[in-house]
Amino acid sequence: METTRLAVYDHYVYAAVALLGTALAAVAIWRLIAAPRWRAQVLSLAGVVPPFLNILGVLFGLTLAFIANDTWSAHDRAMNAVYREADGLRTLDALARGLPDAPRADLRAAVRTHAAATAAEWQQLAQRSSSPAAQHSADQLLSLVASPAMAQAAGSSVHSLMLGTVADLRDDRDLRIALSQMHVNPLKWMGMAFLGLLTLISIAVVHVEHLRAAATAIVLFSVAAAPTAAIVLMQGNPFQSPSFVSPAPIAQLALNPATAP
């Protein structure tokens, strides 16, 4: 149980590792360059020009930017999927108003049931899984819309629009599930961590003759890099805090269904 829970929230663990690892690396590098027994050897490294930092710094910054872009892109895609689902359900509800009494009541009830099941699925999405109830309600909605009785009641053009809307709803739900199951890519983050370590070392080497300047530069870089990486890591799942994509647009359809004219 604890192993499963750790796997679900592994991005928080990686964020803590990023903070602690950066702090330990900064302290270790500082103690190395300031230690009297190594001071003579360290001073022999003097002469590395400051512009050398630009090479490693740019590589580190680009790597972190690309990883952050992937994370925030997943968040935006999840949010767009939620709003598309809500719009699709509203579309079905609006189209149901033009149907005869019996199919209208059936379709609107199916829409409300699916909206409620979808909103309740968020707890499973936060745990990188999906809800069988939401899958069942999606299947029921498709079966209802695809039935010959619904086709006869709606007419060919409206029925075609209904089928397309239900297909889009299922695609957006599949996208949500896929995005909720994203895991931290260790290779990407190991590469970024390696570049960050090299950048810290290069900062120390450039300022090796002036210990106070070296300490200031190392601290500034660490304070800038580690929290930024941790923030990106903590947003690994768009259905977990702090980057929580709300189910409110869908839940509203279940709690406050439109009143038929």
Rank of each mutant, 00 (worst) to 15 (best):
M190H: 11
V219L: 01
V219D: 01
L195T: 09
N185K: 08
E209L: 00
A204E: 03
V206E: 02
L195W: 02
W189T: 14
H183P: 07
L211H: 06
T199Y: 13
A204Y: 01
L195G: 05
V205C: 03
T199E: 09
L200R: 11
G196D: 03
S202K: 07
V206Q: 06
A193R: 03
H183I: 11
T216Y: 09
N185M: 10
R212S: 13
F194W: 10
L197Q: 07
V208R: 09
L200G: 08
A217I: 06
V208C: 08
I218R: 07
A204C: 02
A193Y: 09
V208Q: 10
T216H: 12
L198A: 10
A215L: 12
M192Y: 07
W189I: 01
V184D: 12
H183S: 14
P186G: 07
V205D: 07
S202R: 05
A217Q: 10
V184C: 09
T199N: 06
P186N: 08
A213D: 04
A214D: 06
V206F: 01
V205H: 06
L195M: 13
A213R: 05
N185S: 12
A217G: 15
V184I: 13
H210C: 03
K188C: 04
A214T: 04
G191F: 10
A193M: 05
A214V: 04
N185I: 14
L197A: 13
G191K: 00
L197H: 08
M190R: 08
A213E: 10
L211W: 05
I218K: 01
I201P: 06
L197P: 12
I201W: 12
G196K: 06
W189C: 13
I218V: 15
A214R: 01
T199D: 12
H183C: 10
V184A: 11
I218F: 07
L198R: 07
H210V: 03
